[in-house]
Design a protein around this nucleic acid. Structure first.
Length: 474
RNA sequence: GGGGCCGUGGUCUAGCUUGGCUAUGAUUCGCGGCUCGGGCCCGCGAGGUCCUGGGUUCGAAUCCCAGCGGCCCCA
């Protein structure tokens, strides 16, 4: 099905699958389940997301390292909750002939923490803040989905070690700020949740998560932050000598952001029926110059178009589409499909007036400016596009949320591909009943805004202790 | 974990119920021409293990079984 036929909100799956292939983001035809090929645009954008995040991590004192891909069964099994949470979905390498099996990392706690134990001797070694941008591997049993639910997961994971619980708490807040900054540069609309206890990371004291909205009403968990307390430090023996000379067990946090899921959010939230709409900061081509040739004036037009590209290239990733066998109209569609934020059209009229026609991708509006004004106009448009994407996305997210006063209402909201807000008593049985009868998961209570329950649990009618959101999830 | 649907050139697709002609059409790709301010048009050409393996049959894209892959629903 073509992009034009498969409208984003009507048939999200078809729209998305068709778009990622045509816009050269990813090819999900690789014949091993859950593994996909990232093509030039997908790989480029994920790289930009990585740079954006790593910059913020470096600025806040995190240091980049690379840890091995594998752990052993023995190391993996040390934290009881952790192994329970992950053991069913790890890939195992069988070395044969009685040698121990190796486990490919589903996440790197069990690989990093034995080393942390060696490195940390004293309070002076703390805090320790390290990160890596690598792939982790999870044998997903549910249906996989390109970019959203894959078995080879490109992400960034950061792990920190601290002297005190309050230092760990402060680290959680720093991580929140880092992820908020990155996601906002990308215009992504999200909510931050404190996950209910039954859904927290295996081995964590509590888990926070960034859920981005999706056009099909599901939520897309793009990042998580975990306060690990001393659970792992006890299991892996991460101890240090305190200022007063006594020995203490360290406090830890870890947090991760999935590059392919952030990429999916960019595509799904901003994209339209013409194709990708990319935030300028990640666009492989930020501004494209399209010449509109006219019989007898081809040379002047191409020369002028080249000059315009030259005037922009110092500041922007600027391309000149001088293919002679493709019509201007086809080029317009092509670059809209690719999500180039700004397009500059140059024809006989512009040559005569020493001007340029500038079009912005997000609204498709066009305006004519003089050659001299062009660089500042493009600058202004880039800023405006970035701000507009974020604002539009946030507005859309708010419009997807509805309050529900009963399980029946939750069911209806979910069926309409939206997100329900309810009051909940906090009991697991109610969460399970809700999932069974309404078909959505409790994602948690908001952490980015304060919401106080006033009434009764929509499931059992008991006193509500939390305001929580219910949605289907990837 | 349970159930259902699907797999045909690079892409989308007809044909399958009721087995039988050179596997349909569009798109894409290559060459030529005409155009060029929103995907134009014309001509010629290329492109297929009909998912894989096995079975039934004189004969299988079509029927049966298994596997692989995908989609959807339920838990």
């Amino acid at each position: 099905m073509s992009v034009q036929a498969a409208k984003k909100f009507e048939n999200f799956s078809a729209w998305f699958d068709d778009l990622i292939l045509r816009a050269r983001i990813a090819d999900n035809r690789f014949p091993v389940k859950g593994f996909i090929v990232y093509m030039e645009n997908g790989a480029y954008i994920m790289d930009k997301i990585r740079e954006l995040l790593e910059d913020e991590l470096e600025k806040t004192g995190h240091r980049k390292m690379y840890f091995p891909l594998v752990t052993s069964e023995e190391l993996f099994g040390k934290e009881a909750e952790h192994i329970k949470g992950f053991s069913r979905e790890v890939f195992v390498i069988d070395q044969g002939s009685g040698e121990q099996k190796l486990i490919i990392r589903p996440t790197s706690e069990t690989i990093m923490y034995p080393m942390f134990r060696l490195w940390i001797r004293s309070h002076a070694d703390l805090p320790l803040k390290v990160y890596q941008s690598v792939n982790v591997y999870r044998r997903e049993t549910k249906a996989t989905r390109a970019l959203y639910r894959v078995r080879e997961i490109p992400w960034n994971e950061a792990h920190t070690v601290h002297e005190s619980p309050s230092d760990a708490e402060r680290q959680v807040r720093e991580a929140l700020e880092i992820y908020q900054k990155v996601l906002e540069r990308l215009g992504i609309g999200y909510m931050i949740f404190k996950r209910p206890d039954f859904d927290k990371f295996a081995g964590a004291v509590y888990s926070l998560a960034f859920d981005a909205w999706n056009p099909d009403g599901k939520v897309n968990q793009v990042a998580t932050i975990h306060n690990l307390g001393r659970n792992f430090a006890k299991a892996y023996g991460i101890e240090f000598e305190k200022r007063d000379g006594s020995r203490g067990t360290a406090y830890q946090t870890c947090y991760g952001l999935g590059f392919s899921r952030v990429l999916a959010a960019i595509i799904a939230q901003h994209g339209d029926d013409h194709g990708l709409v990319l935030p300028p900061i990640v666009a492989p081509v930020q501004v494209v110059v399209v010449p509109i040739p006219f019989k007898g004036q081809e040379r002047e037009i191409y020369e002028y178009a080249g000059k315009i590209r030259g005037a922009l290239a110092g500041r922007w990733r600027a391309a000149l589409d001088d293919r002679e066998d493709v019509t201007p109209g086809e080029k317009f569609y092509h670059w809209e499909l690719m999500g180039a934020p700004v397009r500059v059209e140059v024809g006989p009229r512009e040559v005569a007036e020493y001007s340029a026609t500038v079009a912005r991708r997000d609204t498709l509006e066009r305006v004519k400016v003089s050659f001299e004004e062009l660089p500042s106009k493009v600058e202004e448009l880039m800023r405006s596009i970035e701000a507009n994407l974020l604002e539009k996305s946030r507005r859309m997210m708010l419009s997807l949320i509805s309050d529900a006063g009963s399980v029946e209402e939750v069911k209806k909201i979910l069926r309409d591909r939206r997100i329900a807000r309810i009051e909940w008593c906090g009991e697991v049985e109610c969460a399970e009943r809700l999932k069974e009868e309404a078909g959505g998961e409790i994602r948690g209570e908001r952490y980015d805004i304060a919401e106080t329950p006033k009434g009764r649990c929509v499931v059992c009618g008991g006193g509500a202790r939390f305001v929580v959101y219910v949605a289907r999830a990837y």
